[in-house]
Amino acid sequence: MQLFSTFENHIYLEMAISTLEKKGILKENIFAVPLDNRLEQRKLFDTIHRSDGTSLIDIGMALATAFSVIGASIGFKLEWGPIYWGLIGAFIGFLIGFVIRLFIEKVFKKRERVLKGKHSEVILIIDCDETQAEFVENVLFRHFALGVAKIK
């Protein structure tokens, strides 16, 4: 039976390995694989193949609607008329909203674009008998494994 678990690169990983070795799991049956973490920053703009669920145009569309209504209302008194001033207002409102949203994403939410929470840094693979599987799983969770999977 094989057990797969993920850990942060921490002293608890070393403690889990030494505990397993003391309880009869051979060194040859324990395999640790370090993961390479992402070094590049996450992209702000979405592509057709990847989207992070963050919209940059939501505030822009709301402000475009509001500014177009105001522009059309004022446009009845101005020379070009309500249609042109409504379109100009919509364009200006969209630009203002887009810039606000872009500023929020670049400055305030920069830290949130980095992966949140705990990061798996090491995968630990353990070969053992089915009788030892429950014990090995308990040892891994006691030493703060992020996740454990069993394969027969």
Rank of each mutant, 00 (worst) to 15 (best):
V136R: 06
S73P: 02
K22L: 09
A64Q: 04
L87K: 08
Y84R: 04
G117P: 08
V148T: 14
I17F: 11
R50Q: 09
T47E: 08
G71N: 13
D52Y: 09
H49D: 07
F144I: 01
I11L: 05
K118H: 14
F31I: 14
I100A: 05
L44W: 10
I151G: 02
E14D: 15
Q132I: 00
G75K: 06
M1G: 13
S5Y: 03
N29G: 03
L102A: 07
P82M: 09
N29C: 09
D129T: 15
E8S: 04
A16S: 13
Q132D: 12
G81N: 01
F67G: 03
P34N: 07
Y84E: 12
V139E: 05
I123V: 15
L56M: 12
L20V: 01
F108I: 05
D127V: 00
Y12G: 04
G89L: 05
F31N: 12
V114P: 01
D127P: 01
K43V: 13
E105D: 07
K152G: 09
E28I: 03
S73Q: 07
G97R: 04
V69W: 09
V33L: 10
K77R: 11
D58S: 14
D36P: 00
H143I: 02
I17R: 14
E8F: 00
S120E: 02
I11S: 13
F91D: 06
E130M: 02
G71I: 10
V33N: 02
A16E: 11
R50Y: 08
V148K: 07
D129V: 02
E21C: 06
T65F: 15
S5W: 03
V69T: 10
S73H: 07
R38F: 02
L44I: 15
W85R: 03
V107G: 00
K109N: 13
S120F: 00
I92R: 03
S73D: 09
W80Q: 09
E79W: 01
D52M: 06
G53Y: 05
M15V: 07
G71Y: 13
T47A: 14
R113W: 11
E21W: 00
W80A: 12
K22P: 06
Q132S: 10
E134G: 02
T19C: 05
I48L: 13
L20C: 07
A62F: 06
S5Q: 03
R38N: 06
D58I: 11
F103M: 09
D58Q: 10
E137W: 12
H143Q: 15
S120N: 03
L78D: 08
V107D: 01
F144K: 15
D127C: 10
I125T: 13
E121T: 03
G147F: 01
I59L: 14
F98E: 07
G97C: 01
L39A: 12
V148Q: 11
V122F: 03
I104G: 00
M61R: 06
Q2W: 12
K77I: 13
L124Y: 14
F76W: 13
Q41N: 12
A66K: 00
G86Q: 05
A32H: 00
L26R: 09
I59A: 12
L140G: 11
I11G: 02
R113N: 14
I92Y: 05
L13I: 14
